[in-house]
Amino acid sequence: MSKLDKTNEHEEHTPSSSFSREIEKEPGGADIQHCIQCGMCTASCMVASVTEKYRPRKLIQKILLGMREEVLTSELPWLCMTCRQCEERCQEDVSLAEIFHAVRNIAAREGYIPVGVQKVVDTVMEDGWMLKDGYSDFIEDDRDDLGLHTDLGWNNEFVKKIKKRFIDGGNKK
């Protein structure tokens, strides 16, 4: 992930509301201004409990302060597992998973996607599903033994169309 993490911790940043205004317009980002920084999300977050670098509240505050470059080029928005524990507990009903998805969408459009994610997306949009390469003969036999059909019948035309229209084609919105 060399393209990401271009943060410069030592420069002073001037706060601006333009980034959060941008997020507000993305699907899922509408509630960004509802956050009152109470910290309930971070207290509930499993990722935050296993690694020091990820603090959802901090990330939201950075968005509210307008630190666009830093947030979009960072790996942090990709560390949200979307488990939604924070959402259940947020007193303002903010959906962090959705806000971070909005951030990721913008980041993706500007070319900042973690390698692991890019790989999966490429596979899905090509094959129509994730595990075509993983469907070995052994597994086919196991399925047969269990009485399950072996031709999984995934459609790969639709995804190619979608990729052209919404992912490659500069992405609307």
Binding site: H10, E12, H13, T14, P15, K58, Q61, L65, M67
Partner: peptide, 15 residues
């Protein structure tokens, strides 16, 4: 004006 934002953990400034 310069200050340290506790919740973002960053130094900020503004004229």
């Amino acid at each position: 004006v310069t200050w340290h934002d506790v919740l973002a953990g960053r130094d900020l400034q503004v004229d």
